[in-house]
Nucleic acid binder design. Structure first.
Lengths: 359, 359
DNA sequence: TTGTATGCGTTATCAG
DNA sequence: CTGATAACGCATACAA
């Protein structure tokens, strides 16, 4: 159907009212309307009042599409995440939407489903939508980065969060996984544990590699040797944690603590230990990673590392907005590293409380 | 800064390429370019090929803003949810984004934070963004609906999901809570339980009222009387479930089953029962509602009702797209009611498996 | 302080 | 089959 006919002078319909309509009604120019609505200094207070009153009367809604087209920049930000499920990504998205909305932006959300090709299509869609900036957490399968090169060459602000492509020349907000593993392992050692085992994740993923390194650093720091049999590489599933624990408990000299790189895996280990009649944390202390909701409802509750999802979202938006505001003036890429928080709970607390309390 | 200068004939920069640029380069009209790119039948195959090739060469990205402005309809859908956290809303949003993306739409997500005023601002923002339709799950505090009237009067497709304003004249996708409570209570009765208690939620919320009614219907169906002392009204928190269970177990004749209108509350009851040395499900069977992730990791696992989050998202998009496609032809509002699914697990299974198996 | 005129990139109408 | 031209609604350079 052809675009709707111009509104007649008597603005009686419910169809969208434009600035031109208001201008006609008030007998002034569109310029005046536009300026009055955007609080331009060159508009007298009474004129402004008249315009605002009429706008309210006719329920005027600015058309951001038109404004964006004219200005070359929209009030939209794009997010690309692998998926919107579990605890982590929804929380980060929550933080992003909150911060963006506060700054007057709306947010378009896309899922890559861990698929690099899909991620590339997402980028194209966001470019087409003329977003003012893009925030991305990479898909597992992404190994080539031209689609992001295209974004950069357009001068479009881009920030990676959580899963970044690494390097100093990108903007990124990440958690200090190494530190998280370090303080968690340190904590276990502070509880008197001397044989701390590790449930490690897939080492081609940097987060798990960093957590493993953090674990090693803590051992080194304490002057303890790495015992090969106390490190098990898993895909972080609950069942694998249980299986590993079963084997550990069969050792002549089983571990007295387990630092798991993930909560689900820690849960499996915890359940298995109790099935085998071991007391947690007395016989074996356990700590996980990610602060999944369930860590608060197990018995005992599980010590874990909080990933600061909310703050990550906020920091990501902040970094993006800085770039947007920088406009065409050169912007040096920055990496924000968030400090993880150790949440000490029942599964590891063997001596009197060592750190700050936790709700 | 003034809008950037037109690209010179030699398209060497990285700045966005427009149809006009392609037209100039190929020595044809913009019309031809536009038609070739949108697969118009009146364009010859070789011309089409030439255009597509050039478009690829220069990495042409259509400007959807301009297209939307011209056509009066964008490829954007709006979602308004109370918040993006917990299990429910992220899952629904996941379903929505997946379905929308498949249909060629992108999704703008807004949070009302359970605040009616914020919800109203969200609606305005989405109207301004010229979305093609809006999906909303109402904030708790919303009691007036003019902002949605405005949407309707614009002829903009609108679908409520989960939390709807009720009535026959709105489009809505909701779960059959009454049925969920009914089949869950029925299941407990089928396990030989005769004194089924109920942890009820705030009755001013329709979902909890419906669940209570479903519970009552099941009792009636079985010819059992309602015993006042076996119904406790809570705000569905874990602690309240525990407290209620404690009091129940002190009764001379305690319940042999509990149907909770929420999983957290059921969890509290479960934990308390075990603390008191009762066996679950032998002494007291328990079932919850919502299929929270943790119901699978407790011991025993918790029988619950799945709310079909994913399907709800899909159904919502489907209903919205139908309206969009209907265009200006009248569309009779429809309500889609999803059937809940009972997931029988350890916390309630006392006799041989009564229903379909579950993973 | 206000108005005039133009263009953002696309699509639709109408005429070849 | 192709092209010229006019919108869509807004913001701004330039004039008054």
């Amino acid at each position: 159907m052809a675009p709707r006919k111009k509104n007649p002078a008597a603005l009686t319909t419910n169809s969208p009212v434009s600035m031109a309509d208001l201008a006609r009604e008030l007998g002034v120019s569109m310029t005046t309307i536009s300026r009055a609505l955007s609080n331009h200094h060159s508009i007298g207070p009474e004129m402004k009042a008249r315009v605002l009153k009429l706008a309210k009367k006719y329920n005027y809604q600015p058309n951001r599409l038109a404004a964006a087209l004219r200005k070359g920049k929209s009030q939209l930000l794009g997010i690309i995440v692998p998926y919107i499920e579990g605890r982590f990504f929804p929380s980060v998205v929550h933080g992003i939407e909150t911060a963006a909305s506060r700054a007057g932006y709306n947010v378009i959300i896309c899922q890559s489903n861990e698929d690099a090709a899909q991620e590339q299509r997402n980028v194209e869609a966001l470019l087409s939508a003329q977003v003012a900036g893009i925030m991305v957490s990479l898909a597992r399968t992404t190994s080539t980065y031209q689609h992001f090169e295209k974004v950069r060459s357009r001068g479009l602000p881009l920030v990676f969060f959580d899963r970044s492509m690494g390097g100093e020349d990108v903007n990124a907000v990440v958690l200090n996984d190494h530190e998280g593993a370090l303080i968690s392992t340190r904590h276990l050692l502070s509880q008197g544990c001397r044989r701390v085992a590790h449930l490690a994740g897939p080492q081609h993923l940097s987060i798990y590699k960093n957590r493993y390194q953090g674990y090693l650093a803590a051992l080194r720091e304490a002057g303890l040797p790495l015992e090969e049999e106390l490190v098990v590489f898993t895909d972080m599933a609950q069942a694998e944690g249980a299986a590993a624990m079963r084997r550990w408990l069969e050792l002549p000299n089983p571990p007295d603590a387990v630092f798991s790189a993930g909560d689900y895996c820690a849960l499996g280990a915890l359940q298995e230990a109790r099935r085998q009649g071991r007391r947690v944390p007395e016989d074996v202390a356990i700590s996980g990673f990610s602060n999944e909701a369930f860590t608060l409802i197990t018995e005992p509750t599980i010590t874990t590392i909080d990933q600061r999802c909310e703050e990550m979202g906020q920091a990501t938006v902040r970094l993006l907005l800085e770039q947007i505001e920088a406009g065409s003036t050169p912007f040096t890429p920055r990496q924000t590293v968030l400090q993880p928080e150790l949440l000490v709970r029942g599964s590891s607390l063997r001596v009197s409380r060592p750190g700050p309390a936790e709700a």
